[in-house]
Simulated scan of single mutants.
Amino acid sequence: MKEQDEPVLASTNITPLQQIMASSAGALLTSLLVTPLDVVKIRLQAQSKPFTKGKCFVYCNGLMDHLCVCQNGNGKAWYKAPPGRITGTVDAFVQIARNEGVRSLWSGLPPTLVMAIPATAIYFTCYDQLRDLLIPRMNNAETACLIAGATARLGSVTLISPLELIRTKMQFRPLSYRELTQCIRTSVTNEGWLSLWKGWGPTVLRDVPFSAMYWYNYELGKKWLCQRYNKLEPTFTMSFTAGAMSGSIAALVTLPFDVVKTRRQVELGELESLRNSPKRSSSTWKIMYRIISENGFQGLFAGLIPRLIKIAPACAIMISTYEFGKAFFRKLNNERQLKAL
Rank of each mutant, 00 (worst) to 15 (best):
R137G: 01
Y123V: 01
T158W: 12
P111E: 11
A316L: 07
F57D: 05
F236W: 13
A152V: 11
K76R: 12
E294F: 03
L154F: 15
Q45D: 02
A27D: 09
P202N: 12
P83E: 13
C68M: 03
F51P: 02
R173Q: 14
E267F: 07
E100C: 05
T321I: 09
P83R: 11
G296Y: 09
P306I: 10
C68H: 04
L300T: 06
A119G: 10
S273R: 00
K2Y: 03
E142P: 03
I135D: 04
Q129E: 13
I319W: 02
M318G: 03
Q45G: 00
L33V: 13
K76P: 01
R103W: 14
R153W: 07
L9A: 14
M138V: 03
A327D: 15
L194K: 12
S104V: 03
K339A: 15
Y289R: 13
L159Q: 03
R330C: 07
G296A: 12
M245K: 06
L9H: 07
T52Q: 15
A242H: 00
K169D: 11
G325S: 07
Y79A: 02
S211M: 13
R206E: 15
A250N: 04
S161V: 01
H66C: 06
G88D: 08
V94T: 13
L109K: 09
V208I: 12
A119Q: 10
Q182K: 01
L180Q: 09
K198A: 12
T87Q: 15
L146S: 02
Q71H: 11
V204W: 07
G75K: 09
K2H: 09
I122W: 09
K279H: 11
L196E: 08
M288E: 12
S282F: 05
T241K: 01
E179M: 07
A116T: 08
T237A: 15
N72I: 05
S176W: 04
Q298F: 14
N333Q: 08
Y59N: 01
V188K: 09
V266A: 12
L274C: 10
A250V: 06
A81Y: 01
L33N: 04
F301L: 14
F328P: 00
V40K: 02
T254Q: 07
K286H: 12
L44F: 10
G303I: 07
P174Y: 10
W285G: 00
A97E: 06
S246E: 09
S281D: 05
G155P: 00
M138W: 12
K222R: 15
D91P: 06
I309T: 07
P110L: 09
K198M: 10
L29P: 01
L304H: 04
I319R: 06
Q47T: 04
K76H: 12
R280M: 10
T112S: 14
Y123S: 07
R206H: 10
G221T: 04
Y214P: 02
A314F: 05
M238D: 13
D65Y: 06
K49T: 13
F324R: 09
L32S: 06
V114F: 13
I311R: 03
L37A: 11
P234T: 03
A250F: 05
A212H: 06
E267C: 08
P306Y: 07
F297D: 01
Q19H: 01
K55W: 09
F301G: 00
Q298V: 15
T15M: 05
K169F: 13
N61F: 02
G243Y: 05
S281H: 03
I287S: 05
F57H: 01
N13T: 07
Q265T: 11
L163A: 15
L232P: 00
